[in-house]
Design a protein around this nucleic acid. Structure first.
Lengths: 229, 229
DNA sequence: GTTTGTGAAGGCATTCACAGCT
DNA sequence: AGCTGTGAATGCCTTCACAAAC
């Protein structure tokens, strides 16, 4: 599993909900959204578990950490549960995202429709390449395309301040990723999604999640190799 | 982490190496490659652990599962350890990859340089969109670009047979992902990397790893929300 | 003295199984 | 009768701490 949080906050008040559970909430939320679109009103733990690929016991335990939102003998109300999860995850307000590195991957991420529909808005693109700076890139899915100007890496701090971005995406080559990460942190970003194939070291209180495409294939290859004959 | 393997093979003979360990081997391999490029000969568990963001104890335990490749009081030979890991992971021969879905993400993956340098070769592109079929797409990083023809989804089985692809990448919209997955499996693919935001159900013996970009951001947003004032 | 390799201990996550509601 | 919520049990992964090897 693209795995994956490194440092983390030690909050203090919230009911304490385990990292394993948090990592599954997005899948529950997605499945519930599908069910809501299909106008389904209720769902059982068994059914929702099947949709998300977990066991029903695990699903119930996960949900029990958020609160007691089901009805024994009946199941869960789709819309209500969906709302509770979205609230718990902070999806009721939009999150602004800055993408650093506008290569193939950065552009694909900017275009990616899945963000907008799930509470994320790409508000800024930044790159070090002089030939890209100043060009415009289409952002968002069909419905809501916006053209964004590619800003110079040297303006990173200003761009973050102006756009109020709180999530940073590193889609640069490996050798500039640490430098970019340092500057994101210095500019106030405390949540980073890293696509560069290197480990980013960040100060306490900053979260990094890593997505390494080649690693994922390597892990598959490992298992594939073991499949006899 | 982008978490993540669903079904798995129950091999039978190999020394049994845990999923957690397997998921970290690619990072060790990458770091060792960097060190080798920098002509470093030896490395300690402490140093390699720092490069990959794990504890030195965990690194040593992970490596001990592969065999006893270090020297007490000295450390590990970079090149030798790198070779052992690459062998264990099946990186000594190339893996052929078929990408289904040539949208923005599919194209970005095709272009992605990180694959070629780590033992993967994109050998086929497939899409259902008539306007894309027959067009050519550049594949690979600067050094080794190849143009690949986009094949029709209806030819999927033939394409897999001809190219001998063993790894499948699903980069389609969510609503076609399960159908595509079924056809990949029917065509003999038993290792799938899924970028579509849905759970794929596959028969016993087929591995699926999921990378869900929006989920990653949601997990970050969850933690971000908790960071007090 | 230094660093690996590893049993033992500890912590976390998942599964079991059933009590508690509807 | 049906399904959720949850303690208890199990299993897995990580950390500790030190003996073994250089």
């Amino acid at each position: 599993m693209p795995s994956k949080v490194s440092s983390s906050s030690k909050d203090g008040n919230s009911p304490k909900i385990s990292e394993a559970t948090v990592s599954r909430l997005p899948a529950y939320y997605r499945a519930l959204s599908q069910l809501a679109d299909a106008a389904q009103v209720r769902v059982s733990s068994e059914e929702l578990a099947a949709l998300t690929g977990v066991s029903s016991a695990m699903l119930r335990k996960d949900l029990s950490h958020l609160g007691s939102y089901g009805t024994r003998g009946v199941g869960y109300e789709v819309e209500f549960l969906r709302y509770q999860i979205s609230r718990e995850m902070g999806l009721n307000h939009d999150w602004s995202v800055v993408i650093v590195g506008v290569g193939n991957l950065g552009r694909a991420l900017a275009h990616y429709g899945g963000f907008g529909s799930r509470g994320f808005r790409v508000v800024a693109l930044v790159d070090a390449d002089q030939t890209l700076i100043g060009t415009k890139v289409k952002c968002g899915a069909e419905g809501k395309t916006v053209e964004l100007l590619v800003h110079a890496l040297s303006d990173l701090e200003d761009v973050i301040k102006e756009t109020n971005a709180r999530l940073g995406v590193v889609a640069t080559p490996a050798d500039s990723a640490q430098v970019v990460s340092d500057r994101l942190v210095k500019a106030g970003i405390r949540s980073i999604l890293n696509f560069a194939p290197v480990h980013l070291s960040v100060p306490e209180g900053v979260d990094v999640r890593k997505v390494d495409l080649a690693s994922e294939l390597q892990i598959l290859a490992f298992h594939e190799q073991r499949k006899a004959v």
